[in-house]
Amino acid sequence: MFRCDDKQTLISYVYGEIDHDTRQAVDAHLASCHACAAEVTALGDVRSDIGLWVPPDVELDFTIVKKSQLPASNVLRPARWWTAVPAWAQAAAAILVLAAGAGIANLRVTSTAEGFSVSTGWMTPAVSAPAVGEANGPRVAGTSDELKVQLAALEQKLREEIRSTREQDTRAAARTTVDEATIRRVQQLIAASEQRNERELAMRFVEFTRDMNMQRRADLQNIGRGMVNYEDQLQRQRQTINNLIRVSATPQP
């Protein structure tokens, strides 16, 4: 048995969360109680109206990003920095390594009329006198001190070259990251601005249409009122003329 003041059952009925027997009891009550039937209809209409309220269609795009997935814009060294070193510098580095090895081994290369001879500091020279070598041909290898100076100069030059290459790469990488971010930001701003303008235009168009409609209705009402006044005046004039005709037709004593 359903009573009119049982609003909890009524709301269950409106939302359809109700068991079969109770639903039948409410249905039976609504068939005879117009007040409750009207209330159920009205609540259903309100529910339909509520559906018209929509939140704005915004871009959300939330994303959880791990720290390790952040862009490595602050990493100064390129991952494969050695690939940026020029070929000549790589060749020089190879010579440097070779020369350093030769220096450690105290390697000697001599050229004589009989041909080249190679020896280390720990070996007995195959050809006895350096004077012979000096007399018979140019001596290719310098002394140990000269070699060390040359090696040091070469190493210094190589280090400077590698350092300058790294700095250029770092600056270029930073500039590229900043540029991309700026371009992305500008594109977002332009897109947002265009969207805003479109919406504003739509709003203005709607307002303009609404104003036009209101003005049209007001004009029609004025015209209607004017017509009524005109008809009234016309009617009065007709009556006056009829009176005049009647008076003029009456024989004067």
Binding site: V54, P56, D57, R196, R199, A202, M203
Partner: peptide
């Protein structure tokens, strides 16, 4: 209502 949003969106819908 958010300014200038609904009419265009409702029209699209």
């Amino acid at each position: 209502m958010p300014e200038g949003v609904d009419v265009a969106e409702l029209a699209a819908e």
